[in-house]
């Protein structure tokens, strides 16, 4: 039996980053369940990308990546965390042809965190310059599509251009989300973190 002397405590800074990653994974899962219906032929407005945005900006590349990885893992394990309370490895791979976007969110959070913080350890959001954050968020959105569209093409056997056409209706709302995320950054709403 191990003695109490051998307990290797997780250091305080790591506990803080870890619990933030856990909570941002839960927030990503929660936001994926919330969508705002839009009028007319527009696709519903899902808030899922904000999980990726916040994870990258608040936590940096490593812990931001951990947050999104935890999100995907609990989904594979069966928690109903994907859009419309879906779960399972099958959903991550296929989804509605959209499985690649889940993996895209993971890589997007890592890329946004790497651009914004340029180190593994995150800095306070207030210490990041606004233009750099804007570049980081824009790059994250590009990464999501750069992974999601070829993935869809692979899963469905559609040529790349046609897969891109299918996803086209999602681009305007995603650009709007990017604009809102940039407004959040510019308004200093994350500066306390």
């Amino acid at each position: 039996m191990a003695t109490e002397q051998s307990v290797d405590l997780v250091d305080d800074d790591t506990v803080g980053l870890f619990t933030k990653a856990v909570l941002l994974a839960a927030l990503t899962a929660a936001l994926a369940q919330i969508s705002i219906p839009l009028p007319g032929p527009l696709v519903p407005f899902s808030l899922q990308p904000f999980g990726m945005f916040f994870a990258g900006l608040v936590l940096g590349p490593l812990w931001g990546g951990v947050a999104l990885l935890l999100y995907i893992l609990v989904g594979i394990a069966g928690a109903p965390v994907f859009s419309n309370a879906n779960a399972g490895l099958g959903y991550v791979i296929a989804g509605q042809g959209t499985g690649g976007f889940l993996v895209g969110f993971l890589v997007g959070a890592v890329v946004a965190g790497a651009i914004a913080h340029r180190s593994i350890a995150p800095k306070p959001v207030a210490a990041l310059s606004v233009p750099v954050q804007v570049v980081a968020l824009t790059a994250a959105v590009l990464v999501v599509y750069a992974i999601g569209i070829p993935w869809m093409s692979f899963v469905t056997g559609l040529p790349l251009t046609r897969a891109a056409t299918v996803m086209a209706p999602y681009i305007p709302p995603d650009l709007l989300k990017l604009g809102i995320a940039i407004a959040i950054v510019q308004g200093g709403y994350l500066a306390g973190r």
Partner: peptide, 15 residues
């Protein structure tokens, strides 16, 4: 982390 996310997801969703 997985155990905690599963535990906290319903609370955060309610939030």
């Amino acid at each position: 982390g997985m155990a905690l996310v599963v535990r906290l997801f319903p609370l955060v969703l309610a939030d």
